[in-house]
Design a protein around this nucleic acid. Structure first.
Ligand SMILES: [Zn+2]
Ligand SMILES: [Zn+2]
Length: 275
DNA sequence: TTACACGTAGTA
DNA sequence: TACTACGTGTAA
């Protein structure tokens, strides 16, 4: 008998889904709603999977193709501006503003593993190939980047687990990226508010993703959006300078990899040595 | 709040 | 030079 939970949420859209039982569409308790999270728990659970295997790409195609679009002019004359698209399931599994579901699950489960067996945490961090991984889009066939725990993801909702938000950050990478930006600005003789661009930390979970999901809004809109895949957007860069907690952090949980297990860190080291 | 868009810094 | 993607603005 398979005791594994069948509700397997994908860690990202590029993974297959398994089927699960439909769950009555019951509204989320108001006390749990937390701000304006657009989806109910049952939506989280029922949406990514369907009774029959569903072709994701066709699903996505139809979602944009079927909608009769009242075209809005985007202060832009010639080129056809894309009709604004309603969020679809990848967006549901990974809300850009909140703690990502898959990450939340991963972090929570790692935290559990860490408490039970510290060495398991190490194992969880090791890539199957064991390589320090090529940094940029080396299209290697590394299918799964986040291994499911006991074969299944749990549909943790950030709305239901606000505590998980405390797990996501830690460390001082933002010090580096922000400080580097300031230093660059200073070197360029810039005043306040003229900092250079920050750089991704290269250490957080999104930074360590190797491939674009090709399904999030950033991926779909890459040509004109010029944004990195949402699944790869650095956690540090998501925090705005001057935002709450930018200079502080939640102590205790630094789940990121070590400096030298990561490509960008090595790249930095080389750059530093090179001068 | 997110989706979409643009300019351009930073890099190779 | 081409390319990626940060910062920002705007619309919904
Ligand atoms: Zn993406
Ligand atoms: Zn990062």
């Amino acid at each position: 008998m398979s005791t594994a939970v069948d509700i397997a949420g994908p860690s990202s859209p590029d993974q297959g889904t398994t089927s699960c039982a439909k769950i009555p569409n019951e509204p989320l308790r108001r006390s749990l709603k937390r701000s304006s999270h657009p989806y109910t728990l049952s939506q989280y659970i029922s949406t990514p999977s369907a009774p029959a295997p569903v072709d994701v790409s066709s699903l996505l195609q139809s979602s944009s193709a079927l909608h009769h679009h009242h075209h809005h002019h985007q202060h832009q004359a010639g080129p056809p501006s894309k009709p604004r698209r309603a969020p679809c399931w990848p967006d549901m599994w990974e809300s850009p503003s909140g703690l990502h579901l898959a990450h939340a699950a991963e972090l929570l489960m790692r935290a559990g593993l860490l408490a039970l067996n510290p060495s398991a945490e190490q194992a969880a961090l090791v890539q199957p190939g064991g390589q320090p991984e090529e940094e940029e889009d080396a299209l290697m066939g590394c299918g799964t980047e986040f291994q499911p725990f006991l074969g299944a993801w749990f549909p943790f909702s950030p709305a239901l687990f606000p505590l998980a938000a405390g797990f996501q950050m830690g460390g001082a990478a933002h010090w580096r990226s922000a400080a580097a930006a300031v230093a660059a600005a200073a070197a360029a003789g810039a005043g306040e508010g003229m900092e250079g661009k920050r750089k991704r930390c290269g250490e957080c979970v999104p930074c360590r993703r190797q491939r674009n999901c090709d399904q999030c809004s950033s991926c779909r809109n890459r040509k004109r959006g010029h944004q990195i895949c949402k699944y790869r957007k650095c956690e540090e860069l998501k925090r705005k300078p001057g935002g709450p907690g930018f200079d502080s952090r939640v102590p205790g949980f630094d789940l990121r990899g070590s400096e030298f297990t990561l490509g960008l860190a090595q790249e930095r080291a080389h750059a530093a040595l090179d001068g």
